[in-house]
Structure formats: C-alpha cells, structure tokens
C-alpha cells in the first residue's frame, strides 16, 4: 500500500456532495506547500469528483482508497 505520510486528515464522513470537497478546499488554503491532506468521504460522488477538482486546481492527486463504506482520498498541495 501507499507509503505517503499524511500531514492532516479530515473526516468528512456523513456529509453530502460537495461537503467533503469544501472541507478539503478550506484545509488546503491554509496548509503548507507540499503537505498531504487526506479526506474521508462516505459520499460516493465526492470520490470521483474530488480527483477531478484536484487536477483542475493544480494540486497533486495522491490516492483514493476505498474502505468499508467510505473513501480515503489524499491530495498534495502543489501551489
């Protein structure tokens, strides 16, 4: 599995689209450059929507791992 060190985890389980994305964006705004943020989402729409946003926003998509009933999506702040 992935050996990436996660700097901050956001648990956005239980929120609906675009809740997890909004939480991620809020956190990315203040996070240091190159830090890795992992967001937990139980919303399946966000699991496909977040990677698209990450690429468009110029950050680095690290991984999306499906757990039981939720996804762990990691992003590296690139700018």
């Amino acid at each position: 599995m992935s050996q990436v060190a996660v700097d901050k985890t956001i648990d956005a389980r239980g929120t609906y689209c675009p809740g997890p994305l909004m939480e991620l964006i809020k956190t990315l705004k203040t996070a240091p450059l190159q830090s890795v943020i992992e967001v937990w989402s139980s919303d399946s729409g966000s699991s496909t929507d977040i990677p698209v946003w990450v690429k468009k926003a110029g950050h680095e998509f690290v991984y999306s791992i499906e757990e039981k009933g939720y996804w762990r999506i990691a992003v590296r702040k690139a700018r």
Partner: peptide
Amino acid sequence: LMGSVASMSG
C-alpha cells in the same frame, strides 16, 4: 451548489 463549487474552484 454549482455556483459555490465553481467559485471555490477559482
């Protein structure tokens, strides 16, 4: 929803 996501996406 579309407006806010668009706004937060730049």
